[in-house]
Design a protein around this nucleic acid. Sequence first.
DNA 1: CTTTGTGCAAACGATTTGCAGGATG
DNA 2: CATCCTGCAAATCGTTTGCACAAAG
Lengths: 146, 146
Amino acid sequence: MKHSKDAIVTTLKAKGLRITPQRYAVYANLLGRRDHPTVDQILQDLNQELPISSQATVYTSLQALRSVGLVREVLLEEGVCRYDANVEPHHHFRCRDCGAIHDIAWSAFPTLDLVALQPRLQAERYEVTVYGQCGGCQGDPGTIED
Amino acid sequence: MKHSKDAIVTTLKAKGLRITPQRYAVYANLLGRRDHPTVDQILQDLNQELPISSQATVYTSLQALRSVGLVREVLLEEGVCRYDANVEPHHHFRCRDCGAIHDIAWSAFPTLDLVALQPRLQAERYEVTVYGQCGGCQGDPGTIED
DNA sequence: CTTTGTGCAAACGATTTGCAGGATG
DNA sequence: CATCCTGCAAATCGTTTGCACAAAG
């Protein structure tokens, strides 16, 4: 209920993006997941039943969505870029066993004071990255689900 | 003074690594810099005067150093992996203009309480990433130094 | 109809790997 | 002298790009 088709279309239009089936599908897909997928994961999800988009188009759609601030990238592991439709400030948790990434609410930590950093560093924003073991990997053998 | 040749050799040996000129050079180079270089930056630095190492060897040396915990990677931008010989807990600042990465002392922020995270997430460590503008880029036009 | 997007395949850049010769302990 | 490392080049993987055709507004 959070993201109706109309709401998504309206959001895209408001950002000045043309509505195409592929772009819509990429954004809707990202809005509907919590798992910070890679490009290939998005692509496979989209084309599960019938072919919706090509790899190159997923890349360019993500570029477009990023350039208007609807999507952002998450860099927590080597080699791959993950994507997140949650552009509100928040923190991340990364499981050292399965690699899964979970959001942590901004309110989970007290606000940090950035003023007293090294004098010449003018801070604008920050986020906390927590590493550890997620629920599914406690006790279980390290199942590297990708 | 901080990192004598002997001290470096001793450290490498203590970790069970063979001492080779290339491996030594990579580690010594990283210990002597504060700028979280990429592989190519390390390579160019090493081969500045005379050829010391090849690209593939820098990669494998870094792998070896990482596997014993003497070096770690820093992932703050798309596409490239940077390296850091400072493996003590600390935070990072990334300049949005020039991309430079500065260390922030662990003590710059109060310790965060990880116990009260989502119940099934067992946290082990964390770090803060701050984004903003570094000294050199304040006022100056955005000089993307790489 | 003008502009922008799509899809394919080729191009690219960072990293990895196979292998023969060389250095380390 | 057995083991591990180096260096080259080829291979791989994620991402970008050129271009002809198609779709959006």
